[in-house]
């Protein structure tokens, strides 16, 4: 059994998780869209096997297209996706738009259990803390 580390937030219960598809249905590097609790979510399996889920609505165009973007990795290891509409690039871990940090996609928890991919609650605020830590870590270098 493989799971990704879950943030320890009391609200998170099993009921908040939605099974979305089989892990093997996901083409490495090519996203899919999923409906999770009525919200469109973009789900990615990257070349290294990791899973990411962010909001599918591109805040710059208002269109539901993030899942059709190209994934990438910056030299510092940041995994990204570029919206196909106006090519804005987002950090997959925090949802933050790299060139407009005030704009961000919601980030969802995601995990793989017995071959199925599950999308969990919105963890944007938690990933925010990650982002702070991340920036502190990089600026300390």
């Amino acid at each position: 059994m493989e799971t990704l580390d879950m943030p320890e937030t009391s609200e998170i219960t099993e009921a908040l998780w939605t099974p979305v598809c089989k892990y093997t249905e996901l083409e490495p590097g090519r996203g899919v869209a999923a409906l999770v609790g009525g919200a469109p979510v973009a789900l990615f399996r990257l070349g290294d096997g990791s899973l990411h889920a962010v909001g599918n609505l591109d805040p710059f165009s208002g269109a539901s297209v993030i899942s059709r973007g190209i994934t990438g990795m910056r030299a510092d290891g940041t995994a990204t996706v570029a919206s196909p509409m106006y090519k804005d690039v987002f950090d997959l871990a925090t949802g933050v738009a790299l060139d407009a940090p005030e704009v961000r996609l919601p980030v969802y928890a995601v995990r793989r259990h017995r071959g199925t991919v599950w999308v969990g609650p919105d963890v944007t605020s938690v990933s925010d803390k990650d982002a702070e830590l991340l920036t502190m870590a990089t600026s300390a270098v």
Binding site: P19, V32, A34, L35, L57, S64
Partner: peptide, 18 residues
């Protein structure tokens, strides 16, 4: 063909933003 599903878990649901 499967890649053209609107949503992987709801292939026939229309995209509400379109």
């Amino acid at each position: 063909l499967a890649r053209f599903a609107t949503f992987v878990n709801a292939p026939d649901a229309p995209d509400p933003t379109v």
